[in-house]
Amino acid sequence: MNDQRTPLLSVRDLKTYFFQDEGTVKAVDGASFDVARGQTLGIVGESGCGKSVTARSILRIVEAPGRIVGGQILWYDAKGQPTDLTQLDPDGHQMRSLRGREIGLIFQEPMTSFSPVHTVGNQIIEAIRLHMGVSKAEARRRAIEALRQVGIPQPERRIDDYAFQLSGGLRQRAMIAVALSCDPRLLIADEPTTALDVTTQAQILDLLRELQQQRGMAIMLITHNLGVVAEMCDDVVVMYLGRVVEVGSVDAIFHQAKHPYTRALLRSIPAITTPPRVKLHTITGSIPHPYNRPSGCPFHPRCPERLRGLCEVAEPALRAVGNGQSVSCFLYENRA
């Protein structure tokens, strides 16, 4: 951990657009952030903010008509050498060995990520053999071990089950086992607990934290649930309509949020700790349709603090405001 200061992954000005008949959807439009080694980065935002497309861009699994049109995704290998993932062939050898081997992925809906005609074990064994090149027996042994580590009871028996035979929580555990079977350095978790109940969610979050401590891997946690972010993350990236509006440590984001959107979002959630039956603060209006992206700062039509004549014309850039926190808002242009 001596290279704490070099990140594991560095996303610079990433732009991923979807070219459709109805128009171009700028799903990600200039996102920049770093994932530090062994840390958990939370990416939060509401629907259409581009958080999932960002993850897919990193893995180079953006589906047509989507395309990365600009920016860099720098992956630092064990020696600290950067590779720009945007320059790799998405189906090439290098990218495939990164996916699954170096970067693990877990999705929101574990059912659809498992093949219904193969046992869970077979899918883990296949991943292990593909990336580690070990014998079948050894791969099976490792697969059972992986299932045991994620807390699946009786892994020797469960390894021959099909995904539909497992409960939601166990399925998500099996998904994590697949993602971790090759000991990745980065785990991308896209809404890993959204489909689960709270008590199961607590189990899975605990498991992720535990595994992270054991293995020292970094986690990129994509979620809309601010509670999960507060519990899990070291750093947080807040996105709105394809743009990063604020980056900072989890404490700074929750206690000294700068961007009006972050502040409004935090105020609008009913928390279990707040008094009941009072009026919640709301953000006026709703998230614009992606074809109708507002000009200037994408949040300006809903922003209570917008500066007339500025916010609707120019797009603010992400700039540091000290304390490791950055914000893209004209309110802070002069203070930086």
């Binding site: 605990d206 509670g227 404490d251 929750f254 959630i269 928390a271 279990i272 700790t273």
Partner: peptide, 25 residues
């Protein structure tokens, strides 16, 4: 009690040891 404890609280300063239920429903 377990249900209440499992709800993630949107405040990093309130991180606490949760009661994590074993097994499934």
């Amino acid at each position: 009690e377990a249900l209440l404890s499992a709800v993630p609280k949107p405040d990093p300063r309130l991180r606490s040891k949760r009661i994590v239920l074993q097994g499934s429903v």
